Simulated scan of single mutants.
Amino acid sequence: MTMKNADIAQKIFDRYSHDFIQTMEVFRLTHLDAKGNIIDFENMYICPLSLRAYHKKDIHKLTIEHVPQNSLKGKPLVLTDKEYNNSDGYTKDKKIFNFFKYQNFKRGVEPIEAKFSVPDILEGKVSGKLVGRIDGEGAKIKIGLPERTVKLLESRGVFRNWDGLKMNFKINYTHQINKSALLKSAYLIAFSKIGYRLLFSKKGLKNATYGAIIHELQKIDIDEDFPFVFTNALKVDIPDDIGIIETEDIKLLAVKVRYRLTGQEYVYHAILPHPEDESLDSLVKFRDIYVKREIEITVKSINRDYLLK
């Protein structure tokens, strides 16, 4: 870890360590060790993904979590277990990055890597890039190949037989946004704004709401029946990327997640349980009516002191 990153990690550690102690005091919560003694959380940090506690001397076991991930221009918001960070980097982060790479390709912003084969003329596949865009009128694509590949194809007579030539290509892309990665970013943004009061109440950990979200995030993919609602077409303004949305009879938390890649910005709004909800019932109800009809929504600002009112 560089000196700059070490300073960032230290600041994040201290901020949330202090916030956790405050939260425990506000809700008059205590935690006991195996011997029944009250745990002193001074200089301790609780990972928001694993809920494991780390002493300041073990800060090297934590890593800075960019939200969204660093490759999509996220900000260094929290610290998480290296184990979780590394695992997600190979799964969720890779999938969602490929999704936005494909979105940029469809817009004609940047090329996408591809493998080409020419049946009956060229054995095996060669690497290259597709350049172009895909829209309602179809696909307009050009093939970009390295000079050495062009020479190989020329030597095999590919260009002499170009008219009527059959060429196959394969691209590695993700056509749907990875819901687990989006949920993770939305949850961590909400946590960074509210702190441990998002996760705890006077009854302890909110197992039925944010505890359930943490459980889902510990999987590679969230379950299809988990009531996660998100959209890239919510026409409301949410200052500071977080707010309370209200319908006629439902209150929920809305989080704006911004992804940036090669100068392009993609904005999604994720709907999470209201911090005071004791179940996912309101989220389920909202999901069921949201997909069926347009509903009137209002948005109210939220800050760290919201839950103390």
Rank of each mutant, 00 (worst) to 15 (best):
Y266G: 01
I245E: 03
Y268V: 03
L145R: 07
S155W: 09
N98R: 14
L205G: 01
S282C: 05
K202V: 11
Y84C: 07
L252F: 06
L51G: 04
Y45D: 01
S127R: 13
A190F: 06
K235I: 07
H60V: 11
N178L: 01
P227S: 07
R287E: 06
I38F: 07
I295N: 03
A233Q: 14
D281Y: 14
F228H: 04
N172F: 14
A114H: 03
N207Y: 14
E83Q: 04
F159V: 06
N104T: 10
D249R: 12
L234W: 06
I214Y: 00
D223H: 03
E294Y: 11
E224H: 11
I189R: 03
K101F: 08
S17P: 01
S155M: 12
L152A: 04
K140S: 11
G157H: 15
L62R: 02
K73W: 10
S192Y: 11
K202T: 09
M167W: 01
G195D: 07
K206R: 08
K206Q: 10
M3F: 11
L253Y: 01
N303L: 11
E216N: 02
D240W: 11
T91V: 12
E110W: 12
K166P: 02
I96F: 04
E154V: 05
Q69N: 09
N178W: 04
S87P: 00
P76M: 09
M1A: 13
D135H: 04
K35T: 13
